[in-house]
Amino acid sequence: MRHIVKAALAAAMLALPAAAEPAPGGPLTIERQGSFFIGGREVKADALSTLPAYAPSGTITVDQVYVRYQVPAAATGRPLVLVHGCCLTGKTWETTPDGRMGWDEYFLRRGHPTYVVDQAWRGRSAASPVGINRVRSGKAPPDELPTVFSAGHEPAWAIFRFGAEYPQVFPGMLFPLEAQEEFWKQMVPDWLNSLPTPNPTVPALADLAQRLGGAVLVSHSQSGIYPFQAAALNRAGIAGIVSIEPGACPAATGDMAPYKGLPILVLWGDYVDLSPRWAPRLKGCRDFAAAANAAGGQVENAVLPEMGIKGNSHMLMQDRNSLEVADWLAGWLARKVGPKG
């Protein structure tokens, strides 16, 4: 099977254009950088450990969201909060698998403070071991084990639209498959189905936007719906929404009041109509955009190949033309959201 994959990749590489030119280069002056957590709650539990060296009972903090930020000198743009999708972490927005500039640095160079988060119970936002240890210690039955999943390379291949199925490659597809081994290292176990309701990431995003005094929430895939849910909770700090290939948009039959007058972009890559997973989601977002705009919204549903930008996978922020897409998005932000308040 490996020689088949290599042959498919070699053919795909010949069809690919050269990588995009770097964003504005030269020394990068950062006014400040750091990290913090937002949200979180204390939980007392009796199953923190099954090891003799660590007490089973005690208090831990859960549901917090890790935030890593960088603020450029003389910032001109709105803060961008970058939220990753399924089975990934904030690494999504950093250096690409083949070593090119990530969107966190690109938008920083374009004058936007960037805030990269790890969703609750993901990456540096700690998960709770209590559900597992309660079963392991006999305090709960096996059917109460929390649900945790990982996306295997083969099924993820089609989900990320590298090709219709593993190891096929869509013609002209722009993801750097020669660096796929580095990409697969980004993937982590996903606790989504074990989280409380509402997902703790959602109120954390609303709180973070308010703390920043007017931020654009930029989400991807699994997290695509989160900015909409955050706006429904508290729109006060949300200056705009960019939802990249969301797993779902708000229902077209729902309440559109939270989105009235709010600049919203729903952005799609290529090959969507060829995917039984993604084609219905695009249709649902088109329906949402129509309903929201009829109610006074400012929703744009943008499909890159319809604008002449072709070949993008689901991971368009890591594709070979990622900076071309980022440049287009920077223009949209300048036109629709405007400079920092």
Results as ranks from 00 to 15, higher is better:
Gly237Asn: 03
Ile238Glu: 10
Arg335Ile: 07
Tyr69Lys: 10
Ile225Trp: 00
Pro196Gly: 02
Ala230Asp: 05
Gly296Ala: 00
Gly213Cys: 09
Tyr166Val: 04
Gly254Ser: 07
Lys139Ile: 11
Ile60Ala: 11
Ala156Gln: 10
Gly311His: 00
Glu182Lys: 15
Asn234Met: 05
Phe107Arg: 06
Ser49Thr: 06
Arg32Met: 10
Pro305Cys: 05
Leu16Glu: 13
Leu208Val: 11
His220Thr: 05
Val130His: 06
Ala252Tyr: 14
Ile225His: 07
Ala156Ile: 03
Gly214Ala: 00
Leu333His: 06
Pro129Asn: 13
Ala292His: 04
Gln33Arg: 15
Trp278Ser: 03
Tyr54Leu: 08
Ala158Cys: 04
Ser35Lys: 12
Leu212Lys: 07
His153Gln: 11
Ala295Met: 03
Trp157Gln: 12
Ala10Thr: 15
Leu28Met: 09
His220Gly: 02
Arg134Gly: 10
Leu265Glu: 14
Ser221Ile: 00
Glu181His: 06
Cys86Trp: 14
Gly331Tyr: 02
Val83Gln: 01
Val202Gly: 11
Ser313Ala: 03
Ala10Tyr: 13
Gln298Ser: 08
Ser128Cys: 02
Ala206Ser: 13
Ala23Ile: 04
Gly213Asn: 03
Phe170Leu: 02
Val216Thr: 15
Gly214Lys: 03
Thr92His: 11
Trp332Pro: 00
Val188Ala: 03
Gln222Arg: 10
Trp278Gly: 07
Phe36Ile: 06
Lys336Gly: 02
Glu178His: 15
Lys260Ser: 14
Ser194His: 00
Leu205Gln: 08
Met256Ser: 09
Leu282Lys: 15
Pro198Tyr: 05
His314Ala: 03
Met307Asp: 11
Lys340Trp: 00
Met315Trp: 08
Ile238Val: 12
Ala55Met: 05
Pro339Met: 02
Phe183Met: 14
Met307Phe: 14
Ala45Met: 07
Asn193Val: 11
Arg277Ala: 06
Leu48Gln: 10
Leu329Met: 15
Pro146Glu: 09
Arg109Asp: 13
Leu233His: 05
Pro24Cys: 01
Ala231Glu: 09
Pro171Met: 00
Gly237Met: 11
Pro203Gly: 03
Ile238Thr: 09
Gly58Asp: 09
Ala7Trp: 13
Gly25Met: 03
Gly331His: 09
Thr61His: 07
Arg124Ala: 10
His220Ser: 03
Trp93Arg: 09
Glu300Leu: 05
Thr59His: 12
Asn234Thr: 08
Pro171His: 00
Ile30Asp: 06
Leu14Gln: 15
Pro189Leu: 04
Ala151Ile: 12
Pro276Val: 01
Ala73Leu: 14
Pro280Gly: 11
Ala289Lys: 02
Gly296Phe: 01
Pro196Val: 11
Ala23Cys: 12
Gly214Tyr: 01
Ile38Phe: 02
Leu217Gln: 06
Thr61Ala: 06
Gly247Phe: 05
Thr92Val: 04
